[in-house]
């Protein structure tokens, strides 16, 4: 079990103010309330645990805000200013903690109070995370052999992405999520494992599929008061350790797809025989590839598919 190169973890945090407000609601409606500040405290402990494990471990954190996504922290980017250090904490931990909390608070202040909250850009954050992993895994000549303090940019073994979601599925994001999954499977240098923790809200169909298809782990958090323990037991170990000490996996996965026409999640869909687009009802002309479809009654070409045999 040689892990001398350390491993990379990208974390995507769903920061929808409305959903976090619901998550913090008092017990009668919500059995295990988890307000955002308590969530952040536990998350930071988890991130520190990741950095603690190995000097070479790298970390990037992405935030998904309503209608906007951004990188909150990356260990590859050197700190802009020298922060004060104190004798009771390990400087890298302090840097991570303060950077992330400050950036999140800044963003929330910028949000103001819009009349209607835009849906969170979870997919956009996920895509940024993938781009980031791809960017730092490509050896570049500009980052010469000079070793930097915390990390060697030429190696990025075992990259993982952990998605912490609180929002229900957004059916419009079906296609982008699928594209993200395929990119994760086929990333240039190494495939990426996507882990998912659904902290609040209903099971996420799409994220379940993302975890399943990339060999990651999907957890629906039942006891939200034990978030940190869940995170550590299931998502801290790199793939190498998971061969010895297992992590929870799903026993059943919801493989349903969303139709391309109305973005509804469908149990039974109709698939274009040319480009494999999915529709919730028979259509004469495929809206994706513009191919005329022979009317449904006459042809078996637009096939009726059960949910489990869909795109994957």
């Amino acid at each position: 079990m040689d892990d001398s190169k350390g491993c990379h973890l990208s974390v995507v945090i769903d920061l929808s103010p409305a959903q976090w407000h619901l998550s913090a609601a008092a017990p009668p409606t919500n059995l295990h309330p988890l307000p955002l500040n308590s969530f952040l405290a536990q998350l930071l402990a988890f991130l520190n645990a990741h950095i603690a494990s190995k000097h070479e471990n790298t970390l990037a954190v992405f935030g998904a805000f309503p209608g906007k996504s951004m990188m909150l922290y990356a260990s590859t980017d050197p700190a802009t200013e020298l922060q004060a250090i104190d004798a009771n904490s390990y400087p890298p931990f302090k840097l991570v903690d303060s950077t992330i909390v400050t950036r999140i608070m800044e963003e929330f202040d910028d949000l103001g109070e819009p009349a209607e909250e835009a849906p969170t850009s979870l997919v956009s954050a996920l895509t940024k995370a993938l781009c980031y992993v791809n960017r730092v895994s490509i050896p570049t000549s500009s980052t010469s052999n000079k070793p930097t303090e915390d990390h060697d940019p030429n190696v990025l073994p075992d990259p993982r992405i952990l998605v912490l979601s609180v929002s229900p599925d957004l059916s419009t994001s079906y296609i982008p999520i699928m594209n993200a999954i395929f990119s994760a499977q086929k990333l240039a240098y190494q495939k990426v494992t996507i882990d998912v923790c659904q902290i609040y809200g209903p099971d996420s169909v799409f994220l379940q599929q993302a975890a399943h298809l990339t060999g990651g782990s999907y957890i629906f958090l039942e006891r939200r008061d034990a978030l940190l323990q869940y995170l550590i037991m299931s998502f801290l170990s790199p793939p190498l350790i998971r061969k010895t000490l297992s992590v929870p996996t799903q026993d059943k996965i919801d493989f349903r797809a969303a139709c391309f026409c109305h973005k509804n999640i469908v149990d039974i869909g109709f698939v274009c025989s040319i480009c494999l687009s999915i529709f919730c009802q028979p259509v004469p002309v495929c809206s994706t590839c513009r191919q005329d479809q022979v009317p449904y009654e006459d042809t078996p070409e637009i096939e009726c598919l059960s949910a489990d045999a869909s795109l994957c």
Partner: peptide
């Protein structure tokens, strides 16, 4: 001393580190 704990933790093998971390918050 917290710094000693952190350093010793880093010297452990990967599996030992995961076990320590799993038990740390119980």
């Amino acid at each position: 001393l917290p710094s000693s704990c952190l350093s010793i933790y880093r010297l452990l093998a990967p599996l030992e580190r995961q076990l320590v971390m799993s038990l740390l918050w119980l």
